[in-house]
């Protein structure tokens, strides 16, 4: 299918990209294109201008920075998946990236493109929520948005119309911390029907001192499972405690029924995958 006609721009710097974004009417940012281009080919999206960030300098790469890991927004899923830094400091991000789409998607799609797009069934949102990531946005000014303020609705994020997402920052996992992302994939698209990421920190006695749980797929946007986190915190995470905490995984999720599942089923999957993700995270925290 052919998209409707559009004009293509490939600026070389963030400043130039922002200039175009401010100047052009009905422009969309192209950051890999694995969501936008299919929509354009179906003519569900018909932007007049595409501003491709592919040639913008300084938007790729993964590096450690003051206990955080900074990931350039245009870093591909494949680079995230195979990053030595992430694999050693925060492997759950690499693992999540490895579960996105297929190799073609991962070689072109970018972490920033995905997180700025805010697809309700994308994988990475659950993980960045569980980790407590930060989003660095560049407009007229630079600002940092906490992940809890990022996802607003179906394909709606805190990114301003005149801003670019330039960097995603995730914490290096502290000692005694385990993390895991597990999902129930859509049989056709492989998007998450439900995906849950869990990050738990255990003290020497095996008590949970910190828990982060993000849920994607089920609702209008990925959310933090606050009830689950609260139920985990301060507890010794045996099977009963995990089960009881996971039971709250769908609380606060605005579950959307679709062909892959009724509200009841998807809420149930939230609980099942919360349990499995927490179990996996705890196992790793012990290791």
């Amino acid at each position: 299918m052919y998209p409707a006609a559009f004009e293509y721009h490939a600026p070389a710097s963030v400043a130039d990209a922002l200039k175009l974004l401010g100047k052009l009417d009905d422009a969309k940012i192209l950051a890999g294109g694995h969501s936008l281009i299919p929509m354009m080919k179906l003519r569900l999206a018909q932007p007049k201008h595409l501003i491709d960030l592919r040639k913008v300098a300084g938007l790729t790469g993964i590096k450690e920075d003051k206990g955080m890991i900074a990931i350039g927004a245009m870093t591909t899923h494949w680079e995230v998946e195979s990053s030595k830094v992430l694999k050693s400091k925060c492997p759950v991000v690499s693992e999540t990236a490895a579960m996105i789409g297929d190799p073609a998607v991962r070689n072109k799609g970018t972490i920033g493109g995905s997180l700025a797009h805010g697809d309700p069934a994308a994988d990475m949102p659950a993980t960045v929520i569980a980790l407590g990531a930060e989003f660095v946005c560049q407009g007229k000014k630079k600002r940092t948005v906490k992940v809890d303020d990022w996802f607003k609705g179906i394909m709606e994020t805190a990114l301003g119309e005149d801003e670019l997402l330039v960097e995603i920052r995730v914490p290096a996992l502290a000692k005694g911390t385990g993390a895991a992302y597990l999902k129930f994939p859509h049989p056709a698209s492989r998007f998450a029907v439900v995906g849950v990421a869990a990050v738990v920190t255990l003290d020497k006695e095996g008590k949970c001192t910190k828990a982060g749980v993000g849920v994607t797929g089920a609702g209008t946007h990925a959310v933090r499972a606050k009830g689950v986190e609260a139920a985990l915190s301060g507890k010794k995470l045996d099977a009963a405690a995990i089960e009881a905490a996971a039971a709250k995984a769908a609380d606060g999720v605005d579950v959307q029924a679709d062909l892959q599942g009724s509200e009841e089923y998807k809420a149930h999957l939230c609980r099942v995958f919360a349990k499995r993700a927490i179990e996996a995270a705890v196992k790793r925290a012990h290791a």
Binding site: P38, L42, H186, P187, A188, S189, F191, L259
Partner: peptide, 22 residues
């Protein structure tokens, strides 16, 4: 296990792409 053409009552084919039809 996976395939199935599903129509809404109004006649729209909701499994009309490779992203939906497994």
């Amino acid at each position: 296990l996976w395939e199935g053409a599903v129509y809404e009552d109004d006649g729209q084919l909701v499994t009309g792409t490779m992203m939906d039809y497994a």
